[in-house]
Design a protein around this nucleic acid. Structure first.
Length: 264
DNA sequence: TCCTATGTTGTATG
DNA sequence: ACATACAACATAGG
């Protein structure tokens, strides 16, 4: 489910717990979501008694600060964060539960494509502080976009927009939304864009990221009907222009576009 | 039963 | 070394 703005939304579900201390951490040490931890069993004790102080996100990554330890989480395909009352009992897909005095911070993920890491200050510096610029960042320049499209010249645009190394936070629906607004066929090869097309793509990438964060990021609002978003999910949908939308596999992912608005 | 799912990664191949 | 293509991961729901 989660892309840029949904990730920001979920990260903020833990906000009510800020300033509280960790009483207990409950995990399933063998759950796939802890595959990046060297010693999953050590994690609960490393967080015990620490104060929850900070929430940040970067693309689809979330960072939670606990004094001198930082949890980095990724929600995968089906992960969710929420605050549970203190009497909540751990359920089947609750893989990480951080118990505070007044609530519990819960990570639920049926498919277990999500992942968690625990960083110390050195690891935080080497990992979190060297991420690529976000799409809305001033350093995400048109030249940077053009260079990346050239490097991935033989892949369809749709597949390229999903590459987190250049487009942190862009996922399946956001990629389709951006291409629809840019009126580019998702099957076009990245290296085939003209300079004005690159400029338009850059502009729409930034626009969709900003608007998604504003509408979905804080309270999971519903994007208006003027977006592709509400029309794209199942077969039989129509573009706001009236034409039937196409849904097909492009670059390994189901892709939705308007054959009228997005000419090849 | 079969197909799909808002994601990433490992591996084979060119 | 670099780029590309695709299976694999695990589960639920239609």
């Amino acid at each position: 489910m989660p892309e840029l703005a949904e990730v920001a939304y979920f990260a903020n579900r833990w906000r009510p717990g800020l300033d509280e201390r960790v009483r207990e951490v409950v995990i399933h040490p063998k759950a796939r979501v802890f595959r990046e931890l060297e010693r999953p069993r050590a994690m609960p004790e490393q967080l015990a008694r620490k104060r929850f102080q900070e929430i940040r996100t970067h693309g689809k990554q979330m960072l939670f600060g606990f004094e001198d330890r930082w949890l980095v989480g990724h929600l995968g395909m089906s992960g969710k964060l929420w605050c549970a009352p203190v009497n909540h009992r751990v359920e089947k897909h609750d893989h990480l539960v951080i118990r505070l005095r007044h609530r519990q911070l819960v990570f639920t993920d049926p498919r277990m494509f999500g992942s968690w890491q625990l960083l110390d200050e050195a690891a935080l510096d080497s990992l979190w502080n060297h991420l690529p610029p976000e799409v809305t960042d001033r350093r995400f320049t048109k030249a940077r976009l053009a260079a990346f499209l050239q490097r991935r010249a033989r892949r369809p645009l749709k597949a390229v927009l999903l590459m987190q190394e250049c487009f942190p936070g862009i996922g399946n629906w956001m990629a389709d939304e951006v291409l629809w607004r840019t009126q580019l066929d998702p099957r076009r090869l990245a290296g085939s864009l003209t300079e004005p097309e690159v400029a338009a793509l850059w502009k729409k990438l930034r626009l969709v990221c900003r608007q998604a964060m504003r509408i979905i990021g804080t309270d999971w609002g519903t994007p208006p009907r003027t977006w592709l978003f509400p029309h794209r999910w199942k077969d039989g949908g129509c573009c706001p222009c009236g034409a039937p939308l196409v849904r097909e596999d492009v670059g390994g992912r189901t892709t939705c576009w308007c054959p009228t608005c997005q000419e090849s």
